[in-house]
Design a protein around this nucleic acid. Structure first.
Lengths: 226, 226
DNA sequence: GCAAAAGTGTTTCCTCTACACCCATGG
DNA sequence: CCATGGGTGTAGAGGAAACACTTTTGC
């Protein structure tokens, strides 16, 4: 059991959604070497007295100003050569934020912060492209069996937002009627007595995800599945 | 960016299957403090110059003599108080071995090695119970959407072995005819011209998982699903 | 009144499920 | 010949997929 000199970092792949529609990811431009000036996933060293989750939240807040809504562990990357200087193992997380949390501001080790469309990414530092690809794969898979899509929408949203989100993420057309039937069939969306107009066309009713009801249904054995 | 004194370990939850039938997990009895004499998941410190996967394989070999067939990363456990002495973050893996790899032998930091039925576990050291529970959950979930069950069976096996494995893992009866229809429908099992007799009853035909064919089918978009 | 988006039911198809009897061998 | 486990087909139900027109608003 010799002395170890492996360092531990956390990184956070944070996704957002705009009804352009596009899925975007939060990146920071590195202020220091290595990869100075490159875009990278926000993250940093874990401090001795903090949990991994605390470290992720802290780094995110420090570097981007974003406070995360949904966060889960993604994968741990530990290749020998992933950092050119020294041995660094990184625990990557993946997070989702609502559009109204889009107040980003660079600070700390970051020179600049920005959202990038996941279909139009810059070259990334370290093995961050691999991390990001892993996260995208996970996101695409996960929205089909857990209702995490709502974490990307406003608290109250027109049904078409949800539909567009799924169309964008799954990369294929969805039958509007069947989709609505299926989602409403789960009984975890509350239809509100509010309408919203998007400029043109008939105003849409607003919906709200009822998380409590979802957990209740889950206990009863109902399985979310798209 | 202050100096870190977090240590990194890897742990391996290794499952086996006997046609008793039961699912068993490989545990070691600890030779040293803390938790001396307690049963624990095999694992240990990652060395500076080795990858996480290499570390797991090495530790497993050293402590139990087992060479792993299937291995995947499970989750990284980083709670502040998971080790009473110091801050240790552990990357847990989960592995499957075939019955014929059941030659276990204690060595290194282990006093003793043994297989335990997952329904009859001893008290475990550290947070290993939590790690094990996470692994069991993953195993149960994963056999329903990826053909990893074969990694627990002999290279050639009678169909009833597969059926029993699924019955045991899913904890419910399976219709024999429907199950066979579904599995054979995927076209990734080769039926051999060999029969095996289990003492009583009609001898069973042997089958073999065709991994190459599976990857081919996967590329074509066929989805394994039980 | 027209352009734009929202809302809504029915039929068809196919997959999942339920279900029971004969077969091959060992003792 | 009997006990034991292996092997097989079909019918009915239920969920998934296909499909188009009406409604409400802004301009």
């Amino acid at each position: 059991m010799s002395e170890q000199s492996i360092k531990l970092t956390v990184d956070a792949v944070v996704f957002g959604y705009e009804s352009i529609p596009k899925i975007s990811v939060l990146l920071v431009k590195r202020k220091y070497d290595p990869f100075q000036g490159s875009w990278a996933i926000p993250g940093g060293f874990v401090e001795d007295g903090e949990s991994l989750e605390d470290a992720v939240s802290r780094e995110l807040k420090e570097e981007t100003g974003v406070e995360i809504g949904y966060l889960e562990q993604l994968y741990t990357f530990g290749n020998l050569d992933r950092d050119p200087r020294e041995r660094i193992v990184s625990v990557a997380y993946f997070g989702l934020v609502r559009p109204d949390t889009y107040k980003i501001s660079a600070a700390s080790d970051a020179q600049e912060v920005s959202w990038f469309d996941i279909n139009n990414l810059p070259k990334l530092a370290f093995d961050h492209r691999e991390i990001l690809d892993t996260a995208i794969k996970r996101l695409r898979a996960k929205i089909t069996y857990e209702p995490i899509g709502f974490e990307l929408l406003d608290e109250r949203f027109p049904f078409s937002d949800l539909e567009n989100l799924y169309t964008t993420l799954l990369g294929r057309e969805i039958d509007r009627r069947n989709f609505r039937k299926k989602i409403m069939g789960f009984g975890m969306l509350d239809e509100l007595d509010q309408k919203v107009s998007k400029g043109a066309g008939r105003p849409a009713n607003l919906f709200q995800f009822n998380k409590q009801r979802y957990f209740q249904l889950k206990e009863e054995g109902i399985v979310f599945e798209i």
